[in-house]
Structure formats: C-alpha cells, structure tokens
Design a protein around this nucleic acid. Structure first.
Lengths: 191, 191
DNA sequence: TTCCTAATGTTTACAGTGATAACATATGCG
DNA sequence: CGCATATGTTATCACTGTAAACATTAGGAA
C-alpha cells in the first residue's frame, strides 16, 4: 500500500476508513485531519480536495455510521417480527452505542434532525424503523400526536440509556443487565 | 473593573464566571482558555495558577452546573410534594437542558458517574433527588434491583428527551409540547 | 497518437490553541 | 521590616485547521 505514485487512487475512501478507525480509539474532537492524512500517507491538505472542511468529513462519517446503525437494527429485528422485532431494534440501538461510542455520538451531533417534518428518513434508516414499528403497534386509528408521543418516548428511552452508560453515569455492567427491564415495560403497558 | 493592579483579587471566580458566560454562547470545545483570559483582562497563562489544565476548568464548570441543576429541580418540586413533585423534577431537568445546552452537556461529559456505587451523591443533588423520589414511590419493600431499574428508566427518559431536542433530532416546539405526555405515563403505569 | 484541461496532491504559510519554563511582582506572616 | 509564597507575565513549543500558490497526472478531444 506504500505506493509512491503521485495520485492515490481512492483517497476519499481511504480517508473515511482511516477516520473511522481512529474514531474507534478516540473522540471526534481528538480526531485530527493531519493525523488521518499522515496515516494514509498523504499531505495534510490533500484531504481538502475531498472534504471542504473537517466538519464535512465528520458529516460523512456520521452518515456512514447512521447507515451502519440501521443495518444492524434490521439484522437484529429480522430474526423475529412484530413487537419482539421492535424490542430487538431497541437492543441493537444500545448495543451499537456501546460498541461504537464515538461514532454513535457523531451521528447525533453532526446530522440533520432525523425526526423533523422536513427530513424524510429513507426506508430502513433508524428513524424509519422506529416510526414503522410504532405505527404498526398502534394501528391505523392512532392520531399523529399519539404516534409522535410514542415515538419520542421509545426513542428517548433507548437514547438516554445509551448516553448515560456511555458517559459513565451508571455502572456499565449493571446497566447492561437492565436493558431488557428498561425496554420491556414499554411493551407491557401497551404503549 | 479595569484595575491595572498586578494581582486580580479573585481571578478564580472571575474565570469561572466568564467561562460560564461563554458557555451560554458556544460549545465546550470552542471555549478557549485564552479567550477567557483575554475577556477577564489577564494573561493567558495566569489561568494555570488556578486550573492545572483546561480539563480541570471544565470539571469545575460541570460541578457548578450540577449544583445549579439540583437547585432548580428542588425549587420546582417544592411547590408540590410526592408524585407530582417527582414529575416536576423531571420537567425541571429538561428545562435546564434547553436553557443551558452547553453547560448541561458538560455536566455529563466531565463528571464522575453520579449513579455508580462508589459515588455517594450529596443530598439535594439530581442523582439524590431521583433516588429519593423513586424510593418513596416504590416503598420500603422494593428490592434494590427494582429501585435501580426504575431509576434508570426515569433518568433515561428525561435524559434522552433532553439530548434529542438539544441535538435537533426532533422538532423543538413539538417535542416541548410532548414533555408531559412523555413523562406522565411512567407514573400512570405505577412505575 | 498528442495535447491540454481538469482533478488531485504538495509545499508553504498563518493564526489560533493548550501547555511548559523562566521570570516579575505583590501579599501577608514571622 | 523582611522574605517566602502565591499570583501574574513573557517567551516559546508543538500542534491544529485552513488558505494560496504550485506540481503532477489522468482522461477526453483533436
């Protein structure tokens, strides 16, 4: 890979890969364009040919992470349908956060609102899955307000749980053991 | 305040105040020691006499913010006791997050785990309030596991809701209108 | 094929950052 | 009064994101 040809071939992809690798080891703020460039074996400013700014690189990474999250959620839910499938997407959400803390954070800092009216979430994305399962559980007679409330509630639950564990506010192993109890009551209550 | 005496008087407090002010306008990463020093009218390195590193300053700010949050929660809950008081602490939590986004984030990034066994939360702190109200609601016959599950659930709910709104993942006004619906069911379900 | 334009990389440079070390001044205690 | 110590300052370093000017190459038009 130590080609000394002037042109790299596919620098953009290489930069994204390296940045993702660095994200597994350090926070987004610690991620340095120069370090990425160094590791890829290219001058610091070469990155700017593909990303106008660091912010834009982070956005690309967030986009990548979002797709990955949705993918893992779908994979988890595939093994079981309906209500149990929904719970599985929740578990997958928390698991993803724990496995890729920095990437997870990035997704929510550097990305447009997933659940805002003007943002249409693509099929299979985390936001789409959430709305899909909630809509299915509540049935067609539910009002938009009811749907929104349930979506918000379910999302807040898994998101808050993920963040509290990630930030070390709560003892990790104990909290992990509680994931099911935290998620499950939401189903039992018929919500 | 433009005293040109060599010594400032109470630089530590001035730095904290200025930093808190800057935090109302920008993220913690954007907060620069040099800018703080400049605004206070002191050389950049003077700050290091009071805070060994930027990290330490942020910790102090987080500590301050945590106290402020607890204070506002207690004030909100004072107007009504018991279950309604508990709900008020939840509302106060979200309100605080929305009013002081950067300080709120700081609290959870730069602070020891509030709910870990080894950390004893002082009376009146957010974590103490949470455990207090939950314990009261569940009664003395509840097992530690049940208490922990309920604490985690309630906390995750308000924390997740706060974060999703702060990160703009959800339309703010719509979400604010939903706060009660999101918090309330937790009470109705007897949890 | 040849040529030239656009895409891609490099070098150089600048302003801003957190941090350390060496030096300056004032405060308050004996 | 005198001096140790707390507190501020200046100079400097390594690092960052980013812009501008320059170098090289790839790929289509002639």
């Amino acid at each position: 890979m130590t080609r000394q040809s002037y042109h790299h071939g596919d620098l953009r992809a290489a930069v994204v890969d390296e940045a993702l690798a660095l994200l597994e080891k350090g926070s987004p703020e610690d991620l340095s364009l120069r370090e990425v460039a160094r590791n890829v074996g290219v001058s610091a400013t070469a990155v700017y040919r593909h990303f106008p700014s660091k912010e834009d690189l982070l956005k690309a990474l967030a986009h990548h992470g979002l797709a990955l999250l949705g993918e893992q959620q779908r994979k988890s839910a595939a093994r079981s349908g309906g209500t149990e499938g929904f719970a599985q997407t929740g578990r997958a959400y928390v698991r993803f956060a724990l496995n890729h803390p920095n990437l997870f954070r990035l997704i929510f800092i550097h990305s447009p609102g997933h659940m805002r009216p003007e943002t249409s979430s693509p099929e299979g994305s985390p936001a789409w899955l959430l709305r899909h399962y909630i809509g299915q559980a509540l049935g067609p007679r539910a009002t938009p307000e009811q749907v929104f409330a349930s979506v918000l509630r379910a999302w807040a639950l898994v998101h808050g749980l993920s963040m509290l564990i990630l930030d070390g506010q709560v003892e990790r192993k104990a909290a992990e053991a509680m994931i099911d109890q935290v998620i499950a009551p939401d189903r039992r209550a018929g919500k």
